[in-house]
Computed example of a mutant assay.
Amino acid sequence: MKSVIHPSPMRRVTPILTGLVLAALASPLMAHGVNENDKAFIEGASGVNIIPYMYLGAKHMVTGYDHLLFLAGVIFFLYRLKDVAAYVTLFALGHSTTLLLGVMLDIRANPFLIDAIIGLSVVYKAIDNLDGFRTWFGFAPNPKAAVLIFGFFHGFGLATKLQELTLARDGMFANLVSFNVGVEMGQFMALTVILLLMNLWRLGDSFRRSAILANAALMTAGFVLIGYQLTGYFSKGV
């Protein structure tokens, strides 16, 4: 008796990844962009604004497709919540550290190059998920160290964008901390949705087979981000 073949869960995942790739192609070279309304608020605000900055932080995370692609890759083969928590904590630590220090100490770098490295983080995670490093080079980078290091770049990417705005010194530290709290709230919401979809997908028999295609799509998205940012660097950023 033939088994019934159900539609592959990959059909649900592919449109999501495709949409994120198209978003990268359609955006104005602003993986960490701040829209005009948010710019106007940030540049016009003074003093401590805890709730608005928490909202902006959460909004940045749930609309930041580069963050979501990387985090989706990080948790792709993590099945225990404590492992998910460990990796996400490392990413949050890196992200928060460079965001705070980058803005408070006015540490500057070319935003296109930083965002290209963020794209590289997506490529790295896809290759790691496919065990490409061991296959091609005979070794694999420490995954926790890699997540922490790339977390530094993800945070620094936003710092470079905030440095382009006129931030009031009054209340800056409290506002940045509030922003980071919002980022963590947005990250929690986004990860909850991603984990629910991922767990549903893992119930299917085709998960292992379609996982290769999903990570190939993830790698493609990373290369799109890298190419887009380097194009911006050579055309505008030098």
Rank of each mutant, 00 (worst) to 15 (best):
M1R: 14
H6A: 07
P7K: 11
P9T: 05
V13Y: 03
P15W: 15
I16Y: 14
L17N: 07
A24M: 15
L25P: 02
S27P: 01
P28V: 06
L29A: 08
L29M: 13
M30P: 01
H32Y: 11
G33D: 09
N35I: 09
N37G: 14
I42E: 08
I42Q: 11
A45N: 12
G47T: 13
G47F: 14
V48Q: 12
V48G: 01
N49D: 07
N49A: 14
N49V: 10
N49L: 11
Y53T: 01
M54G: 04
M54L: 15
L56T: 06
L56W: 06
G57N: 13
L68Y: 04
F70K: 01
F76M: 09
R80V: 00
L81H: 14
V88G: 04
F91S: 06
L93N: 03
L93S: 02
G94T: 08
H95E: 02
L99V: 05
V103A: 02
D106G: 05
D106C: 05
F112W: 15
L113Y: 08
D115V: 01
V122K: 02
V123R: 10
V123E: 00
Y124D: 06
A126H: 09
A126V: 13
I127R: 10
R134Q: 08
G138S: 08
P143A: 12
I149W: 06
F150I: 02
F153Y: 04
G157C: 08
Q163N: 12
Q163E: 04
T166K: 11
A168E: 08
R169H: 03
R169W: 03
D170Q: 14
D170V: 09
A174P: 00
N175K: 09
L176Q: 04
V177W: 03
S178E: 03
S178W: 08
N180K: 11
N180G: 10
V181P: 03
G182I: 05
Q187C: 02
M189C: 12
M189N: 01
L191C: 04
L191W: 02
T192I: 02
V193Q: 05
L195M: 12
L197R: 09
L200M: 14
W201D: 00
D205W: 10
S206P: 00
R209Q: 11
R209Y: 13
S210Q: 14
I212C: 03
N215C: 08
L218K: 00
T220I: 13
L230E: 05
L230P: 06
G232V: 06
Y233A: 12
Y233E: 06
K236W: 12
K236A: 01
G237F: 07
